[in-house]
Write a protein that binds this DNA or RNA. Sequence first.
DNA 1: TATGAATATGAAGAATTCTTCAAATCGAGT
DNA 2: ACTCGATTTGAAGAATTCTTCATATTCATA
Lengths: 114, 114
Amino acid sequence: MPVPLYQAKAEFFRTLGHPVRIRVLELLQEGPRPVHELLADIGVEASNLSQQLAVLRRTNLVASRREGGAVLYELSTPEVADLLRAARGILTSMLADQGELLAELRGTRGEERK
Amino acid sequence: MPVPLYQAKAEFFRTLGHPVRIRVLELLQEGPRPVHELLADIGVEASNLSQQLAVLRRTNLVASRREGGAVLYELSTPEVADLLRAARGILTSMLADQGELLAELRGTRGEERK
DNA sequence: TATGAATATGAAGAATTCTTCAAATCGAGT
DNA sequence: ACTCGATTTGAAGAATTCTTCATATTCATA
């Protein structure tokens, strides 16, 4: 039983534990996209997005290449889609059960915490 | 497109972003287990494990019930297994690619950090 | 080569999460 | 009721992660 693997797994999940990073990954599922486009879709400061992209790059979840004036990002492996799908499955079934954030699922907007 | 859902997803992944919590989930895949047994398998302080179990409980990833003198924990949904499997898939393929932590995968033990 | 748009980087304070310690709770058995 | 083992809780400082600001790069084009 590989011991420090748990550490690696935890780090991996922690990488996904940020709303901007999640959005980026979901957007990239549809194919490569330039930063300025991500920037437009997700509404955060450019430097903030860049920081999050850097995190995703470090962990090799995404890769970037320059295309003319812009930088394109893409998923480094399509398997990420599987993961996101699995997560979506659990989340919706859990939310359905507890029914707590169901409103959110329907787009009600709001900002509760715990 | 549900907006604050990204927040919920991020929180969900962050919940998985801790080595002890990952181990607990993996152990629970094999079925319900009493705390003292988890405690023996994972080598941490009782109060630490308890804190992590509390986190998993809050997010409804696990459920607990009392069985005589001990408290049993179990996954609240077996779908968690899918998620962990998907993560394992990505991780191993990524590690294989970069080959960086491959040694760990084989049980070589060690403690490097970037 | 100078200018500008796009993107990245470094650093600092704010916010969040971890770990640990001490103390509380809950039953079981006496 | 009392005590013991098992588990949880609250709190505080340490450690990590976020956000933001200022500045740096990089390339394209004038």
